[in-house]
Design a protein around this nucleic acid. Structure first.
Lengths: 158, 158
DNA sequence: GAAATATGGTCAACCTGATTGACCATGTCA
DNA sequence: TGACATGGTCAATCAGGTTGACCATATTTC
């Protein structure tokens, strides 16, 4: 009798992974429906970070994403090629570059926010507003407890 | 005024990702504490699948994980080298191989189950038993609604 | 100030986990 | 029995990351 069949304790982390995956799939399906190219999740995290930190450099971004500066640099170059990000000269440090979202980048982020809200709304329809509220509160509580004042690591999952 | 600051609708999917990540980190920390080598998440999914489907072949596994049979084959070879999985001749199909967990594989799975339960218990201590129960119910409801009778795809996240 | 050191960024080589494509051996079906 | 389908392997390639060396500019220390 395997102790690892469906029910029982320890299921929640697995379910979290499944739901996370399902919602990500949902998001990408909505994106595809609109005919938009699917940027990878790491790009979304980059957008969010740049929008929130307009004076960020590549090194900052790398630290935030939990990857090396080389990897971050490559990602930024890609986003720049696609017109989502600009690299401007840093006003005081001639070595550094200021990373900023272009209008196109902001547009994409706004769209993504809308789509995530749609996904969330769908979740709400399935589980009901009460459970949705509880879910949100539980997640926030856990995140606050885990990271406290520290910056929440937005690193991609594994 | 960026529409993508912290609060607001659409946050839940992001929070799910963060919590999932935090719990995975927690799991790996506990594993490391015991001095156990950290198999990758895909290995965990493989173990679970093999435990639940004792007559599985490499192709079955690949389909379940959502990867190519070549990739699955490589992963199985690795797990076999480490002594977690055996490849036995298939009783009726000379092309195929039966994948089975070794005792060592079952051990690891049991340990993983225990650690995930610990992680879950910790979550329960943080958010309280009521919210934990609601969370679990909400996740299960959403999963059932999304996948219904179909097999839940255990594919790694992105 | 000048020398030593730290830091932002790039280039290049490499690793890993996946992919596609070709192929063989066995199974299944007409 | 011949045609096609399927389980598995080998080989080449790709993507996204890593480490290491390096340059130019900042910052610290004497």
């Amino acid at each position: 009798m395997p102790s690892h069949s469906h029910p029982g304790p320890g299921q929640i982390p697995l379910q979290l992974a499944v739901v996370h995956r399902a919602m990500t799939d949902d998001f990408h399906a909505r994106l595809a429906e609109l005919g938009r190219e699917p940027l990878r999740p790491a790009h979304g995290y980059t957008f969010r970070y740049l929008a929130a930190h307009p004076a960020a450099t590549t090194v900052d971004l790398a630290a935030h994403l939990g990857i090396t500066k080389q990897a971050a640099s490559k990602a930024v170059a890609e986003l720049q090629d696609w017109g989502y990000v600009e690299r401007l000269p840093h006003p005081t440090d001639k070595r550094a570059q200021l990373l900023t979202l272009t209008e196109r980048g902001h547009d994409y982020l706004r769209l993504a926010d809308k789509l995530w809200a749609d996904v969330e709304r769908h979740l709400g329809e399935v589980i009901g507003p009460d459970q949705l509220a509880t879910l949100s509160r539980a997640l926030r509580t856990y995140i606050d407890h885990t990271y406290g004042d520290q910056a929440v690591p937005f690193r991609p999952v594994w």
